[in-house]
Structure formats: C-alpha cells, structure tokens
C-alpha cells in the first residue's frame, strides 16, 4: 500500500488465534480465531468505531494494535513503523504515542494506589521528571478531565464510576498520545454519566487532536461519536463505511440485524422489525463459507461454501456479502 500522510495506523491481514488446550496432556486441539484476517486503515484525527457482539474479535484488534497481545500473523504499522518487528526500544517509544481506556473503571485502576500515582505512572515510566514536576503534571491533567487537585490523594474506591473513568482517561492522555483505543469506555456507566464522558472524549479529541479507535456494541453511541464504522462478526469485518453509509444504507444482513436489535430510547421511532435468529456460533469452530449464513435470512447455497470478501459498494463503503447487490438500495 502507498504510505499516506493521512494514515495513522495500517493493519494488514491481521490474525490472532488463541490455542484451546484440552485432554490429559493439554495438547492444543483447536484454535479460537478471534481475529481472522483483518485489513483496516485508521486515519489521522478520525474516530473509527469497531462494532460487534462479544467474541467477534473487536477487543482483540484493539489489544493487538497496542501490542498487548502478539498477532499470530499480519502486521500493524503505526506512523510508518512496523510494530510487529520493532525492537524493545522502538516499541517503548511507540507506546508513548498510543494508549487505552478500558471498559470497566472498577478493574482498570489499581485498588491500592492513590490517584496521583495511577495517573502519574506513565510519566514515571517514560520520563525523568522529578516527583514535584509529576505532581504538577498530574494536577493539570486531572483538571483537564474535570477533576480537582484534592482528588489526587484518594483511592479509586472513593469515586463513582464516571469519576473513575475520568481518572482512566487522565492516565491515557497524560503523555499526550496521538492514538487512544477506547474499549467500551461507557458501557459500565449510567446514562447521564455516559453522556458526560462522551462529551469529554470529544472535547479532548479536538483539544489534543487525537485519533480514536472506539470499540463498542452500542450503535447509538457509535452514531454520536464516530466518523467511520467497521462492523465485525466472528473475527472478520463484514461491513465498513462512513457513519452515514452504515446508518442510512446498512447492507450486510448482520448490520441490519444489529441495528434492529438495539433498543432505541424513543417509543415513536419506527424501525425494521427483524428478530435475530439463533446464537453466535463457537469462534473455535466457525461456520464454513460466510460465517453469518447460519443466522442469515438471505442465505443461499453459495453462502455455505464460498467465503465472501470485502467489496466496494461506492466511495468508502465496503461489504462482505454475496448478495449485497440485491440488498443494497
């Protein structure tokens, strides 16, 4: 691919298989194909939403980009540097540029550390600042996420879920990274708190010109946050496009099922009535052909045999479905 200055991260045919051991000798019997050949480009200053149900591999992609898990195959290129074969020192430098905010603020903050130590930790690892300089930096950062100086000397359990998530955000932005993986940052929070965290994230994105990979299963939040959307099912991207493409012209049958399944907080909203069929198959043993064919209303013989590839519909809208021409209007 051509290196483009607009591109921050490029993911090429990324695969991540987790071995499943069983039997007396714990032999590897099969692999869970969490991510099974994904190509994705994340542009500078955009919010790319990665949508799907649990077990579809969206979280694994986030973690592989950050090199928290080694990919089985494929590569991740961050600002032109290949992460998969970077040396330890290079990786350390690259880590300063990317951070993560986890889903559950109750488990992502060390319970025995004071807030000042949690938020100051990245500075301790990556800089040689004095303790007073770190304290000042922590104070500034906490203020930028809407917390106060006195909060520095408390333990995480003294905070509400929303405040904890602010602490986690502060930790993520203190090194002024370029890219943040947001792994369902609001799904453990109440609605009125969620709104404030989402607004905060949008403000910070403007202020620090950040790029987000927003991992979620809530399409309403995607609509509010994202520029582009990638829909995943069982380790594969099934549909990719600009937010408006995905919401006004959902093409893959799975995207349509997903949109119909999300409860909309508006009793007057009229939407397609599709009741999803069946359950998500075992990712260690995904269906042959198109992985969605077991639950798909449009399934034909070809779907059971041939795996569809991402095809361009128009502009930046891609779909992996044999029958998209009939569905797309």
């Amino acid at each position: 691919m051509v290196t483009n200055n607009n591109v921050l991260i490029e993911i090429n045919s990324l695969k991540k298989y987790f071995p499943v051991r069983s039997g007396i000798f714990l032999r590897v019997k099969k692999y869970v194909r969490a991510v099974d050949g994904v190509d994705l480009v994340i542009k500078r200053n955009e919010t790319l939403a990665l949508v799907g149900e649990s077990g579809c591999g969206k979280t694994t992609i986030g973690r592989t980009i950050l090199h928290l898990t080694e990919p089985t195959d494929g590569e991740v290129v961050f600002e032109g540097k290949n992460l998969t074969n970077a040396s330890k020192e290079e990786l350390m430098q690259l880590r300063k540029g990317m951070q993560i905010v986890f889903q559950n603020p109750y488990t992502s903050l060390h319970p025995r550390k004071l807030v000042k130590d949690i938020v100051g930790e990245p500075l301790k690892i990556h800089t040689n600042l004095s303790s007073v300089e770190i304290l000042n930096k922590v104070k500034e950062t906490l203020e930028s996420v809407g917390l106060r100086e006195e909060h520095m000397y408390r333990y995480p359990h003294e905070f509400s879920g929303g405040q904890r998530q602010r602490i986690a955000v502060a930790r993520a932005i203190i090194l002024k990274p370029k890219f943040i993986v947001l792994d369902e940052p609001t799904s453990a929070l109440d609605v009125s708190v969620q709104a404030r965290i989402l607004n905060l994230l949008n403000e910070l994105k403007e202020e620090l010109s950040l790029t987000y990979l927003f991992i979620t299963h809530d399409l309403a939040v995607v609509d509010y946050m994202a520029d582009r959307v990638a829909v995943m099912y069982l380790g594969k991207i099934v549909e990719l496009g600009k937010k408006d493409d995905i919401f006004s012209k959902p093409t893959h049958p799975y995207t349509r099922v997903l949109e119909a399944a999300i409860p909309i907080p508006d009793p007057f909203f009229k939407k397609e009535k599709i009741l999803p069929k069946g359950e998500v198959p075992d990712p260690a043993n995904p269906p042959k052909g198109c992985r969605f064919h077991t639950r798909c209303d449009y399934s034909i013989d070809k779907c059971e045999k041939v795996e569809p590839v991402l095809e361009n519909i128009e502009g930046e809208h891609y779909v992996a479905c044999h029958r998209w021409r009939e569905i797309y209007k």
């Binding site: 609605v191 009125s192 969620q194 609509d223 508006d266």
Partner: peptide, 20 residues
C-alpha cells in the same frame, strides 16, 4: 435523562445533568 441518551440521528452535543 431522556436528553442525555444518544439516539441514532442526534445532532449537536448531548445534554447532561449537572452534579452527581
């Protein structure tokens, strides 16, 4: 509460309830 929840098609900033 109703205004704080994003609905598909929300335009502009989400409104929030002050305080905790």
């Amino acid at each position: 509460l109703i205004k704080a929840v994003p609905v598909i098609g929300t335009k502009g900033k989400l409104q929030t309830i002050k305080g905790i």
